[in-house]
Design a protein around this nucleic acid. Structure first.
Length: 444
RNA sequence: GCAGCAGUAGCUCAGUUGGUUAGAGCACUAGUUUGUGGAACUAGGGGUCGGUGGUUCGAAUCCACCCUGCUGUACCA
């Protein structure tokens, strides 16, 4: 093989993708097991849909574009555009529409899966990430919306967060609709600019967001964003409405009433919760963390929400002639895990194997005998899988965090007792082969 | 997309009036110890200084363009 630098493959990862190591995966597993427990308790069904969908099925049909690349990863397969799903809600809507007659109504399902977004990654944001979704499809009952917030909160607390660590914010599209009616603003473009500005209050503060309602704003880096060009009197009205902090739409009032019945208190009505502009039709929720999150360099970063959702009463009916209200919530699991690992010192220890050291390859039969005894007792164990002297084997055992090694060389064979070396204390003791498993269990 | 900052060994980084063969710590390999890790000592391997082009007798260093990363901002169904 000719070694040519130009033909060597890159060891770099594509932008926005990440390798994830055991430490993180174990915390993720812990979170997932909590989620499943809660979902079963709340009566949800488990569903999985494929990673790819037809591009138009997930609302990404762009007839005027050669390639549907606006935020999704796509490719053309036999004249049909396929895209990697960008969330779990659109595939759910497709699934419900496809199986509409057979499904119970309401249909409650939860789903865990990777989603992909073809956009610029940010701190704690990747182009591939794991999402959790819980949805109620086919009901207008606001108890569904309320219960989603209660259930999210139960999941977070099971994962070790206190009530002071997070807040569920709630608002409703109906609230802002009413506001625009009052302000007599009808331009769709202006409305979306205003909504986006309101969405940023949380991050930028009112005085900066205000500039986006007016002429525009220059950010820290010197970049300029045009505003919605509202006159001061209208901005003032908006400011007052935001200050009032009392829910004035019936849906939010109803939901908060149900919260009381659940004795759920960790929520806040916040009209600046906006989220996606396209499909929410009623109540909107957002889950925010109240503690500081840092990146790998120790700098505090703008972390944003770890999840949210709301009511989308028109999404499923896009697929056919049926009226199918729905509401759902999702969590970005990787982001939650990232934050949790900073907040809590997880003592989830990974199980590392006991190492049986190799003195003589011809003794493999004896080593395997010991190995089988340990594995039969459900002890993680292995015969040193590499090649080299005892020193190298000890270094290996140390590096992988093995709790102990077993030495079984000439001396031990003569005496009929293996040496069990505890790698934490360094203590060595002679143990009969048949007692090894029990002795090891004592030190695990 | 826009903006600011950055890219030198596997990792963290030093390295300017441009000047021999580009450095340190950690990590790695071997040995001191042919049956003992986490400590110490000795020796060693490892870099087209992000890429391409330019200026120059000479570029890690200066210039242009590109790529990548971080942070902010825009978009986020």
């Amino acid at each position: 093989m000719v070694k040519n630098k130009k033909t060597k493959p890159s060891k770099e990862l594509p932008l926005g993708f990440a390798d994830r190591q055991e430490k993180e995966l174990l915390v993720r597993d812990f979170v997932i097991s909590n989620i499943k427990e809660v979902m079963i308790k709340y009566g949800f069904q488990y569903l999985e849909t494929p990673s790819f969908e037809y591009t138009d099925s997930i609302g990404k049909f762009l007839p005027d574009k050669e390639r549907p690349d606006a935020g999704v990863f796509s490719f053309k397969d036999e004249n049909k555009w396929l895209s990697l799903r960008y969330d779990l809600t659109a595939p759910l809507a497709r699934y419900v529409a496809k199986n509409y007659l057979e499904l119970p109504k309401p249909f409650k399902r939860y789903q865990l899966g990777s989603v992909w977004r073809n956009e610029k990654p940010g701190p704690g944001r990747f182009r591939e990430f794991l999402q959790f979704d819980a949805d109620y499809v086919g009901t207008k009952n606001l108890q569904a919306d309320a219960e989603l917030c209660v259930l999210i909160s139960e999941i977070l607390e099971k994962c070790g967060l206190d009530k002071t660590d997070y807040t569920v914010k709630i608002s409703s599209r109906k609230f802002t609709d009413k506001l625009f009616e009052q302000l007599k603003i009808k331009s769709k473009d202006q409305i979306s600019k205003i909504l986006r500005a309101l969405d940023k209050i949380d991050r930028l503060g009112w005085s900066e967001a205000k500039k986006l309602l007016g002429e525009g704003r220059k950010d820290k880096s010197g970049d300029y964003t045009k505003g919605a060009n509202l006159k001061n009197d209208k901005i003032k009205i908006i400011e007052n409405v935001l200050k009032s902090k009392t829910p004035e739409t019936e849906d939010v009032l109803e939901i908060t009433k149900i919260f009381q019945a659940y004795n759920f208190k960790n929520y806040k009505f916040d009209p600046s919760v906006i989220r996606g502009l396209e499909y929410y039709t009623g109540a909107i929720f957002e889950v925010n963390l109240n503690f500081e999150v840092k990146n790998s360099k120790g700098q505090a970063i703008q972390f944003g929400s770890i999840g949210g959702g709301g009511r989308y009463d028109n999404l499923v009916s896009n697929f056919g002639n049926f009226d199918c209200p729905a509401t759902g919530i999702s969590i970005g699991l990787d982001r939650l895990v990232f934050a949790l690992m900073q907040k809590k010192d997880f003592k989830i220890k990974s199980t590392r194997p006991i190492i049986i050291c190799v003195f003589d390859k011809n003794r493999i039969k004896e080593y395997i005998e010991i190995l089988n005894k340990l594995r039969t007792s459900n002890i993680s164990s292995e015969i040193y899988p590499g090649e080299g002297k005892l020193k190298k084997q000890m270094e290996y055992a140390n590096k992988i965090g093995s709790p102990a090694v077993i030495l079984y060389g000439d001396n031990e064979i003569k005496s009929g007792r293996a040496t069990l070396k505890n790698l934490e204390t360094g203590n060595e003791s002679p143990i009969k082969i048949e007692d090894l498993a029990n002795e090891i269990k004592k030190l695990l």
